[in-house]
Write a protein that binds this DNA or RNA. Structure first.
Lengths: 248, 248
DNA sequence: CGGGATGTTGACGGTCTTCAAAAGCGGTGG
DNA sequence: CCACCGCTTTTGAAGACCGTCAACATCCCG
């Protein structure tokens, strides 16, 4: 994993560029390879933003607030690229959900060198926007949704990102504990548990052991998630709000 | 505002590139100039992400969820660049807080052409990351903070982004209504109002009319915001969590 | 100065949290 | 293979915080 050259191969595969170039060599020089075992936590440089490339495993990125409160801002899986801010209002740490391997880069230096490659910059920009859009959806969930809606939405989101074992359709194996789910959704583990029980009683999902959840009815689950509905959402805006519709 | 050439000048000023180039011409061809009056709402292309350049004024970006619920995901001021996602879990709309002017671009096409300029890509990437980090902080606020903490944090954040009139130090003129504050913080307007009253009674702030707030004591306000404290935040992590500290 | 929108205050109720205890899963060792 | 033990999860009851509903006050604009 920390064998020299592993980083260059990963860079090349991620960005679709040849691995033998001067650029991949320069970038890989900046890398710090890190392995994070399940439950272990990594702190990055508090004075500057870092860039992380998760080559394998699964991690969570948590923000820490006063009075020991934690908010998970994102889950990441193999192949993900994500950034960790310098310490500002909250400190951010990476924790392994499974044994994981990643490369850490000082963000600024990485960008300085990557600027030479439009392809890399384009990919970074698109990944960053994806993260932003996901984070905004999370903000809506945390700010405006009930516990039921948050849990239903969480299960749907995980069903998209995790692949289920071939033998049982709609079955997902959550790599995180109820505590993690709660810290991601802004709920306590008790509330998460109660919501799962209720979804189970409604016949929408089922549980297999601790970490497996079978999604019987995706449509009904989506209906529970309280996301935007076709065309009712505009009601409640300023009464005479003008609308300028963009085309193209 | 929509005079041809205005967009090129703005692009040039924003990215620090010459305005007479072929690139700025190409990019400005993609622009749709829009003026949004106070209270007016703009919808962008629901099928693809858009990029917005706010040349002047102030706007909010809201996400719409089921049952007419709104969550403001960001406020923007003159000079800001921000992106609006295609319709996914939630629909996003731009609304003017003041009379505002902006240029809208189809994001993909803009990136395709901007890829030729490392400078533009670098700026876009950094702005996107700033937006992401702000959104994460918002997620922490919405998920883990009390009403008091959210309002205190909001006032501090606005004090940083808005400039106060020279004659009265610590005085900020909020361009948004209590409703907007509530929709940004995941609270009702009544709760926002009560929190402001309590901060006022504690002597930490004062109000002047509807939209002006005087921040008497920034330190005490920060203490109310519940952000990360120097070194107590790690308590509560997994007991024996190993930590790998990054340098550089 | 008057009217309407915006903001404040009060009483009550619901949802989620907190605190506490029981149950269940999963790994280890006999 | 089964029994045991620790940790995660579930379940229950009580309480806190914020939302809802309603009335009143205030600001701002014409």
């Amino acid at each position: 994993m920390s064998r020299p050259g592993a980083c260059r191969l990963f860079l090349s595969a991620t960005f679709g560029i040849p691995s033998g170039t001067e650029l991949t060599r320069q970038l890989s020089e900046l890398a710090t390879p890190v392995t994070v075992m399940r439950g272990e936590t990594v702190e990055t440089d508090p004075t500057a933003a870092s860039l992380a490339f998760l080559t394998g495993g699964a991690t969570k990125l948590s923000a820490l607030a006063a009075r020991g409160r934690h908010q998970i801002v994102a889950f990441h899986f193999g192949g993900d690229i994500f950034s960790i801010p310098a310490e500002g209002l909250h400190r951010h740490v990476i924790t392994g959900l499974r044994d994981s391997a990643l490369f850490l880069f000082p963000a600024r230096a990485f960008y300085d060198r990557a600027a030479a490659s439009p392809r890399i910059m384009r990919t970074l920009l698109e990944r960053s926007q994806t993260a932003l859009f996901r984070c905004r959806d999370k903000a809506v969930n945390l700010g405006r949704k009930t516990a039921r809606e948050r849990v239903a939405g969480f299960l749907l989101g995980m069903a998209e990102r995790l692949d289920c074992p071939d033998d049982e359709p709609g079955c997902i194996k959550l790599p995180m504990s109820r505590r993690d789910v709660g810290e991601s959704l802004g709920l306590t583990i008790e509330t998460v548990s109660r919501q799962i029980t209720e979804l189970k009683e409604a016949g929408i999902i089922d549980t297999r052991g601790r970490s497996c959840i079978v999604l019987h009815d995706l449509d009904q689950l989506a209906a529970q998630a309280g996301n935007v509905e076709p065309r009712d959402a505009m009601s409640g805006l300023a009464p005479a709000a003008q609308r300028v519709v963009m085309v193209q």
